[in-house]
Write a protein that binds this DNA or RNA. Sequence first.
DNA 1: GGAGTGACTTTTT
DNA 2: GAAAAAGCCACTC
Length: 105
Amino acid sequence: MMEFEQRVWQRCQEIPKGMVSTYKEIARSLDTKAYRAVGNSLRKNPYSYLNSSKVPCHRVIKSDGSLGGFHGSKDDPRKAELLRKEGLVIKDNRIKNFKKFLYTF
DNA sequence: GGAGTGACTTTTT
DNA sequence: GAAAAAGCCACTC
């Protein structure tokens, strides 16, 4: 069932710079409710944003605007910095006005 | 084939 | 607004 994961990763790449998306939106765009499976796939994705720029998983956040716990550490500023560089405003591990930057498929 | 896991979401306390 | 519970799907052991 790799297709599902690939589709997820593809959505990540589809997110334009300076925008973010949520697990739920991705799942919805795939016509499924597997928001958990989305996270599960991203967790194991072979193109982790640390190793490759192919899948900017850092642009995928939770539906309430928080970044979630990527890469295993919640205190890692790299992701927040990355997003901040793309024009997003991060406050206490939350995206400010993230709805404005929310990219829906 | 069943039980456990996870970078989740939504509703209810 | 924070915390807990229930519900969801794919993947791994």
